[in-house]
Nucleic acid binder design. Structure first.
Lengths: 248, 248
DNA sequence: CGGCCTGTTGAGGGGGGTCAAGCAAGGTGG
DNA sequence: CCACCTTGCTTGACCCCCCTCAACAGGCCG
């Protein structure tokens, strides 16, 4: 066996090893969170590995056939839905361990495109096999129900934000929410890099890009955050959280 | 046996008969939609009957323990979430056959209160038993996944409405959506009665009551609808649907 | 009849959108 | 290596949509 072929096998084996749920650092947050080791192996067996997505590449497009849900392994993505002529709406950002595509189950097509914001790896989980396995594994089924329920809950929070909060409160909410999500994933809640553009943020929060920019400037004056490009340092998380509440 | 006792038995029997899924006129829309007759009996067996709610009564309150989901049988309800001091947000309206409470699964408490808008009857479905039954009945499980998925999809539509649409478009969307929901339930899509107040509508759509009132007036001038109190006649559904799209 | 609640209508002001210009960073080709 | 362009972000000026405040009308019930 030639040397490079042996290397290729090693590499594949190592990749396979890395991408097993049992060894995944996210397993305490991800879908198989509640599974015993033995059950996790069953779950692991139905997962399809995917080549990493490059920045800007689509995991899937709006309207394409729904077959799988995806768990984010590393990187991040945005969901955008298009209606009518070219008017996009960013409806979600996805971070590692989060499930993408649950809103496609009902009509068997994805209701929005999902685009990588940076180099991103995902685990593909064919939904029919997930459903079948959820019959045998009550913990898996429960976790799936909980994931969808959580997303519903988050959506309600987002609706409140969009219909009642001022631009300042929206951005404060955005930062505190991101901070919290990073914290849960073991990253610093105070220093992180935004993988999305100002345009994405504005679109997501229902604000013009210019407004996002202006308020970011104001937050810096108030020494709530320090922002340089996409690099964010939160200086006063508590004050931000206060801002984020919706009192006038 | 005294006459009135016999009557009571009859009445109870009749009530029981009425409230069985097999005889429910909504069964083609509701959760057991995909079930065979035999399976439906199993499903029917776990449902708890409830006394009708009067207008203004709560099905449950925000923060109370989650144990059941509910299927609306007749009437309608609103979901409201309270945050901070007295600032309510209407996050949903529920019509017959729709499922209430799915967003409580995750954290084992209901994230909002659900209030009857009129005299309303619901079927209570204890979630642990529903979950257990969904293990045996793949169709039931599938329908539950689909229901949650549909709600996610609807939420995304709502977010788009709240972040991109003008007040006119929001109200046009609201009416076309209601019209469509009535149509699917076998009611007239052109004539119906709003069970919610202007304040509820405004709150739900992220608008002030005054704005709702003004735009309703404008819609009448344009002969799109005829509104008298809570009685609505849609005169030009197509034009309303056009309005509802989000082109400037 | 007189409160109370819901809904309508008018006047005024502000938050944030739109339009426009400028600037820094990064890529590309000469 | 530099001129050029593109992309993303910031800042300023203006103005419009919708919120706020206020008064009022109608329906319901005591």
């Amino acid at each position: 066996m030639p040397v490079n072929a042996a290397n290729a096998v090693d590499k594949r084996r190592s990749l396979l090893h890395e991408t097993r749920c049992q060894n995944c650092s996210l397993s305490s947050l991800c879908l198989p969170l509640a599974l015993e080791l033995e059950d996790m192996e069953q779950f692991d067996a139905i997962i399809r590995r995917r080549a990493p997505l490059k920045k800007g590449e689509a995991l899937f497009r709006q309207g394409s056939a729904f077959n799988s849900v995806f768990a984010v392994r590393s990187g991040s993505l945005k969901q955008i839905t298009t209606e009518g002529s070219g008017d996009d709406q960013v409806t979600n950002f996805y971070l590692p361990s989060e499930l993408v595509g649950l809103d496609g189950i009902d009509e068997k097509t994805y209701p929005g495109s999902v685009i990588a914001l940076e180099t991103t790896t995902v685990c593909e989980i064919p939904f029919d096999r997930l459903d079948a396995l959820s019959e045998q594994l009550p913990e898996l089924r429960g976790q799936l129900y909980r994931s969808m329920s959580k997303e519903l809950r988050d959506d309600r929070r987002m609706m409140r934000l969009l219909s009642r909060k001022t631009a300042d409160q929206r951005l404060a909410s955005f930062f505190t929410s991101l901070s919290d999500r990073f914290r849960r994933r073991g990253y610093s809640p105070y220093s992180f890099r935004l993988s999305m553009s100002r345009a994405d943020i504005g679109n997501y929060l229902g604000l013009a890009v210019e407004t996002v920019s202006r308020i970011l400037g104001r937050f810096q004056q108030q020494e709530l955050v320090e922002v340089s490009g996409r690099e964010v340092h939160i200086l006063n998380l508590e004050a931000l959280a206060t801002q984020a509440q919706d009192e006038p």
